[in-house]
Design a protein around this nucleic acid. Structure first.
Length: 442
DNA sequence: TCTGGGGTCCTAGGACCC
DNA sequence: TCTGGGGTCCTAGGACCC
């Protein structure tokens, strides 16, 4: 048996933990650049506000109902997520962290009988709430896909937040109640296709032959879905070990690392784009080192206005291949700037840029190139990166950095946001990760 | 004026290898 | 007339997830 624990309205709930006066009031959190609504409290959902809606379109409605608006604060949400995982790790035989706000628990081998499963799910909800202030729902079933369904059906209010679907007699009526698009793995495209064929509910989907799903829903992906809906576990279990020394979940492996951002306004100048791209390469390299990985493929991304009526591609990419795998910021910046020079057209203004790193491998395993990056160079590079990471972790993220990332100052010489930076007008403090933002208890 | 960011997996086709 | 079989790696595109 698996349990899926999903944090309710996670980002909005994080903000509320530190602003309890907002309990019971509508709250929304915006995406980067204050672009779209990406999290809504229940009260905000009840006002008819939709996920992903552009902020500028719903602003009048938000003001009319005095909705509290936050820019996204990923330092806060990431740390709250870490705390939730810490609690969950103490409550189950195994944890599989699926995203920033949800995790599967392994309830097998815990000697829980059926009525106890429900009680234990409740205990998980109560413990997470007590230790972190974050409300959750719990869904329990023999496969991940059915646990997802159980979670969806769990009440968001009231004392009981757990649903158990233990046998076909439990999950078949549940499947019959939900539209097919609710099922995990059925997105908008498949839902429309299925509806056009007259398949409207989860149960109608489950009752089709297995080979039909293989044929029409993405090959083996569809076949796995069929089996999962019949109680046969097909999706992998990826355990996340809690690291007691680091007080954080163990790092999962990665196949790619990206850092992309929309600009506050379109940018045309080479110098500005170069600072932005160097900054994204720096962030991506830091992430790579945190994961203990190295890359040999650097992709630079430039994007024009996605909503412009003009035809043609809105995203352009250039790939730079490195002779040797590395996670050295200076090398990755050089490669990214080379890609930028290849890509950039002087008569175009860009709304977005980014850096994508692929071809990842564990850093120790990286082969030395035949003609480059001799061993002593490699060692010096590692020492330099380690020194920079140590200083930046201890004294603040941007303390030591490459000059290529820019050095914007205001009229009195204070550092200020670069010209390409996006909007973030409603950012909350970093309550749990910044010394200056910490709460004081008198 | 104004619309996010970061991932995953699968398939098909082509180049290349023995 | 008549040209194998079994792989890997890469890319692009399409679907999905949060």
């Amino acid at each position: 048996m698996y349990a899926l624990v999903d944090c309710n309205n996670f980002y909005a709930s994080c903000e509320r933990v530190f602003a309890p006066q907002l309990e019971g009031k509508p709250v929304v959190v915006l995406s980067n650049n204050d672009g779209c609504l990406i999290s809504r409290s229940q009260e905000a959902k009840d006002l008819g506000l939709k996920m992903g809606e552009p902020y500028h379109l719903v602003r009048p409605l938000l003001e009319q109902h005095r909705v509290q608006v936050f820019s996204s604060n990923y330092a806060l949400y990431g740390d709250m997520s870490r705390r939730v995982v810490q609690v969950l790790s103490g409550l189950a035989g195994g944890v599989d962290v699926y995203s920033i706000d949800e995790a599967f628990l392994d309830f097998g081998g815990m000697n829980l009988l059926e009525p106890d499963l429900l009680t234990y799910g409740q205990r998980v909800h109560e413990t997470v709430l007590q230790h972190t202030g974050i409300p959750t729902c719990v869904g329990i079933a023999p496969t991940k896909t059915l646990a997802k369904l159980a979670n969806r059906l769990a009440p968001k209010t009231g004392p009981c937040r757990t649903v158990l679907l233990a046998t076909p007699a439990d999950w078949e009526p549940a499947l019959a109640r939900v539209p097919v698009g609710i099922i995990w793995g059925v997105g908008r495209r498949y839902a429309r296709k299925l509806n056009e064929m007259g398949i409207m509910t989860g149960l109608e989907l489950a009752q089709l032959p297995e080979h039909w799903l293989r044929r029409h829903l993405g090959g083996v992906v569809g076949q796995r879905l069929w089996r999962e809906l019949h109680g046969q576990p097909c999706l992998e279990w990826n355990p996340t070990e809690w690291d007691d020394d680091q007080l954080q979940p163990g790092l999962a492996s990665r196949h790619s690392v990206t850092c992309t951002r929309s600009f506050g306004r379109p940018q045309q100048q080479e110098a500005v784009l170069a600072e932005a791209v160097a900054t994204f390469a720096t962030k991506a390299a830091e992430k790579l080192r945190r994961y203990g990985m190295a890359t040999h493929l650097v992709t630079v991304i430039l994007g024009t206005d996605r909503f412009a009526p003009a035809a043609g591609p809105k995203t352009h990419t250039a790939v730079i291949s490195l002779a040797t795998s590395t996670n050295d910021t200076t090398i990755l910046i050089k490669a990214a700037l080379q890609g930028l020079r290849q890509l950039r057209r002087s008569d175009v203004a860009y709304n977005r840029a980014g850096v994508l790193l692929t071809g990842l491998e564990p850093e120790g395993q990286a082969q030395l190139g035949l003609f480059s990056n001799t061993a002593p160079d490699h060692q010096r590079s590692q020492q330099l990166m380690q020194a920079m990471d140590t200083l930046n972790t201890r004294f603040g993220r941007q303390l030591v950095r490459s000059a290529a990332t820019g050095n914007a100052k205001n009229a009195v010489g204070q550092p200020q946001s670069p010209v390409w930076a996006g909007r973030s007008a409603h950012r909350s403090p970093c309550y749990t990760t910044g010394w200056d933002d910490m709460w004081q208890v008198r």
